[in-house]
Design a protein around this nucleic acid. Sequence first.
DNA 1: GTGTTATCTGAACAGCCGTTCATTTCAATC
DNA 2: GATTGAAATGAACGGCTGTTCAGATAACAC
Lengths: 205, 205
Amino acid sequence: MNGCSDNTDPMARTSGSHSEITGPRLREAAQRLFARHGYAAVTMRQIAAEVGVQAGALYNYIPDKQGLLADLMRAHLEDLLAAWADEPRGEGPLGALEAFTRFHIRFHLERPDAVFIAYMELRNLAPENFAGIEALRKRYETELEDILRAGQAAGVFDLPDTKLATLAVIAMLTGVTTWYRDAGRLSRERVAGLYWDMVRKAVGA
Amino acid sequence: MNGCSDNTDPMARTSGSHSEITGPRLREAAQRLFARHGYAAVTMRQIAAEVGVQAGALYNYIPDKQGLLADLMRAHLEDLLAAWADEPRGEGPLGALEAFTRFHIRFHLERPDAVFIAYMELRNLAPENFAGIEALRKRYETELEDILRAGQAAGVFDLPDTKLATLAVIAMLTGVTTWYRDAGRLSRERVAGLYWDMVRKAVGA
DNA sequence: GTGTTATCTGAACAGCCGTTCATTTCAATC
DNA sequence: GATTGAAATGAACGGCTGTTCAGATAACAC
């Protein structure tokens, strides 16, 4: 993760003082600032100030600003896919859809900054980075589409257009990150329940 | 550099009474570029090049870059509210909801750039501009909320949480702009119909 | 102690940023 | 033809941009 070449000597990593802490802190600061102000509006010096180093030091951990953005987005989407792969499914398409709904809301509410970046900064990715990131996003989308298609085939759902339903449901669920606040009147569990109620009805189950 | 081959010619290539055309062209170019690359990533010189003038000339029409963004967003939201005010409603809450759904999709698909900006660049608004823009956005949101509340009161809808349903429906509908392409397999009418089908079911009607 | 090595500083680089303004251009009016 | 004035130019402004790099610093091994 630290961008160094092959780590041939496991003991060599203990030489510096802050190397193990600066890398993660850089990523955290960048994620927070990118989400808050947008990739293009954030300067390397702002990130460095947040980390507590000079701007030049950041380049011990990242190739460049663009690479930093791509890394953040890729890491987020890989986390997402891995977490969903580990998530227990319910029974049948209906159970799977409920699992997906509750998982999606929980996962996204836990990382609002990463979600924001992944959805808003696609246009700031260089073409060579965009392709890979977009493929990951598509893979996640397909997870839901497969559930809906299976439910449609099993006669559990009523969907005139499975593909459109996939996009509609994901947009609805992801929208939660734009308004949900921890201090609000609804708990995350309650929100997930309310969304599941709407999703279930929307797919005709 | 004006791009002309003859750089010894001191005379400007274009000039004269273009004032009535340059203003709108500036706004169109800015809208397209802001939507494509993001407000912070677009330079005044890029906009000027698109319009066909030098950067300095833009300031005959706008106070500054920030004012340009605020103007674009305010104009779009006022258009949105005015268009919805003129839109014929169907009968009762169900008819109103269908009218809103179809209107929202049609209106948003007709101006993808303006929509993109209005909902992605809120964070780039200076505080004094943000308040007014956010109020307009809220007013539109309330239009849907009122419909849902009326339908809930009339027993036509089944909504455990009207406020959340409002946000969920708007997110779902607005999401159409992220994937719809005119060259795709579905017409706008068909898409609106499919979304209406899901919305109707989601609200329990 | 010496030497090694990862880490960070601080200055520099070339270039772009939004914005201003004196000047130039030219259609419209007298 | 002369005058006017809106509209555009082109250069300039101070400041900020991402990135590089020689040199300082400090923790480790010996």
